[in-house]
Design a protein around this nucleic acid. Structure first.
Lengths: 217, 217
DNA sequence: ACAGAGATTAGAATGTGTTCTAGTTTGCCA
DNA sequence: TGGCAAACTAGAACACATTCTAATCTCTGT
């Protein structure tokens, strides 16, 4: 069977977290009991484990439910769609990157090279689990939700390149430039996962783009 | 039903058209009889028509087959997966853009603004059929194949900004820069389709990026 | 301790991409 | 003209995301 039956669709949006429905949605930003938290965590872990072996395809909802020890219905109560689950997995990855950056902030001299540092660090992190990375990035690009890889990475880039600048403080132009660099990175990563770029090529390209885009940020 | 059942998977690769299987694959680069050509065209048209109303979701393989007046099996003989069909539809769109550019080449003075011209022209073209655009771009980003929106657009940008330069003649750096600009554009387009950017924002962002990236190409 | 609300479960059902089967039609060539 | 290979067709079959159902469990307030 050469085929991929896997489906990637948009996650159930509700862009602004409005619309708190009748019942208590365990995934929502409402209070979560310890056991709910545990359950949610188990699910995400099971999902990540499956995805890192075999990508999204291996991460079948039935299988995830099974591995996490919950019923399919429960899985769907926590994550209304497969995309939502993928997004959650990505969140974890990004948390990892951010804490890595806190522990060991990029120390290069220019804004541009600090940005390169962050992006290449993220790249290496993702390369460790290529299947997972592939699944996550593809899925996220598709997602209707706030795309962590776009927005959070833009924020990170601003922070390291303009020394602590936050998204709210940045000028339009700074946002544009950091955002553009993030776009380039995402696309390059995708190309790498497709086998159409080597790590070195990515690095060169990121460096070139960063040097131009963040020259004077 | 708020859900999207639609599947977007990778198109059946065979990246270099190698592996000419036993039978004559109508999709391949082999000779095509007139009737096969007609049939293929009818299929792509039917697919595009469906996608422009309702996106990929509306473009169901059964429906496409029906509208094109072929059996489901035949559809799958021409396009081994839904992705392949989507890619074919995109090809048509890009042909359109390229011929538009031939008819009326961008006349701005600087390489950077000629590039902006091309990108914004493409943007407007895609905006005319947002559903179709959404379907196409999302799908293409996922595709394992040579991504038309990346590579062909990069080629186009080089051509207009460095006056007739082709991909083969370009230096690595030129390729990097034009490629990065194409990446930015693709991502911006996606954001627009998600409703997170206006046309004006895109234009500003493209202009900013282009000015930096293509300043001296 | 008990009632009621919400959470959970097992499993059936549905929808759509993809594959498979068996038979029919078409085009070509000896 | 007869026959064969490839193309085509209708439709069944299969896989997996998602939804639905009915029953059971768990907690919380009284």
């Amino acid at each position: 069977m050469r085929t991929s039956h896997a489906s990637i669709a948009a996650p159930s949006s509700d862009p602004e977290g409005t619309m708190e429905t009748h019942s208590t949605p365990p995934g929502g930003h409402s209070v979560r009991t310890r056991s709910q938290h545990q359950r949610r965590k188990r699910i995400v872990q099971a999902a990540a484990a499956l995805a890192s072996r075999g990508g999204v395809e291996a991460m079948q909802m039935r299988t995830v439910a099974e591995r996490a020890g919950v019923a399919l219905g429960t899985l769907y109560r926590y994550f209304p769609s497969k995309m939502d689950l993928v997004v959650a997995v990505v969140g974890e990855e990004l948390d990892l990157l951010e804490s890595s950056i806190e522990r060991r902030p990029p120390s290069a001299a220019t804004p541009s090279s600090r940005a390169v540092d962050v992006l290449m660090r993220a790249t290496r992190g993702l390369m460790r689990e290529p299947e997972l990375a592939d699944a996550l990035i593809r899925s996220l690009i598709m997602a209707e939700v706030q795309t962590p890889f776009g927005d959070r990475m833009t924020g990170l880039l601003l922070r390291v390149s303009a020394d602590g600048l936050t998204i709210d403080q940045a000028t339009e132009e700074q946002l544009d430039l950091a955002g553009s660099l993030a776009s380039v990175w995402v696309q390059e990563l995708l190309e790498m996962l497709r086998g159409r770029r080597t790590y070195d090529q990515i690095q060169r390209r990121i460096e070139t783009a960063s040097a131009r885009l963040l020259a004077d940020v």
